[in-house]
């Protein structure tokens, strides 16, 4: 069995009176694609933001690549190899597509490697090559989502975290985005995904965690997700 890239133990996050995460525990092994499925407000985004360092954690540990990171600032976590695609893409709107991509490889000093990564990104997302000089704020929603994913990949992450990447996209674009996720998974990138769309989660994930009211209530695999009567009723509408 591959070693853990990330281990989250008994994580607690609180926003004033709301307990967003309550003893959340999960792990992702090298090369895996793990999805966190939960309803709106279950704490999926809070969990990913806590791993990235956007949210302060009250208790618990985050161990990334055998190192405790819960007290590190965000930029140091990113430098260790965690990339994050937030909900709503959040590209840098007044910087062009190429600039956004170069920012993704901010820590890389070797120009050859940056060019190699750009070539790889453009092979995954040819549309971005066409839009290279365009300001990111003028892209369509789908293109922005592609750019956010591409920017995260430019850092050559050890762990790629993506938050609700299908949210607000047309069905055709959702399929395209998940095809890319599948391709990334096949290429060996370790992925932690949060998703409301349980069907899509089942398509790409090796393992799935169900998050409810800030707690991990179930860990299952693809078949388990699709055959569990409770999950079918709660998340698949069957």
């Amino acid at each position: 069995m591959e070693k853990n890239i990330i281990e989250i133990k008994n994580l607690k996050v609180r926003y004033e009176n709301i307990q967003a995460l309550n003893n959340a525990t999960l792990n992702v092994r090298k090369g895996e694609c793990v999805t966190i499925v939960g309803a709106n407000g279950a704490g999926k985004s809070s969990l990913l933001k806590a791993v990235m360092g956007f949210n302060k954690t009250d208790e618990g540990n985050i161990i990334f690549n055998n190192q405790n990171i819960e007290n590190l600032p965000t930029y140091k976590r990113a430098a260790l190899g965690i990339s994050f695609v937030p909900e709503g893409a959040r590209v840098f709107p007044k910087i062009n597509v190429l600039g956004n991509l170069l920012l993704g490889a901010y820590k890389e000093k070797d120009k050859e490697k940056i060019i190699e990564r750009l070539d790889y990104i453009y092979s995954l997302f040819p549309r971005l090559k066409e839009r290279e000089k365009q300001l990111a704020g003028t892209l369509s929603g789908g293109e922005r989502q592609m750019l956010a994913m591409a920017r995260a990949l430019m850092g050559k992450p050890l762990l790629l975290m993506m938050d609700e990447i299908s949210l607000g996209l047309m069905p055709k674009l959702v399929d395209m985005v998940f095809e890319v996720v599948e391709e990334l998974h096949k290429s060996g990138i370790t992925i932690l995904l949060s998703e409301q769309n349980a069907h899509k989660a089942a398509e790409v994930a090796d393992r799935i965690y169900i998050l409810e009211l800030g707690k991990i209530t179930k860990e299952t695999d693809k078949e388990g997700l699709l055959n569990d009567p409770y999950i079918k009723k709660a998340y698949l509408g069957k």
Partner: peptide
């Protein structure tokens, strides 16, 4: 480039190291 990124979205700028 980093200055522009920080002025547009500080959290996301930190998330690219």
């Amino acid at each position: 480039l980093a200055l522009k990124a920080v002025s547009q979205d500080m959290d996301m700028a930190e998330s690219v190291a």
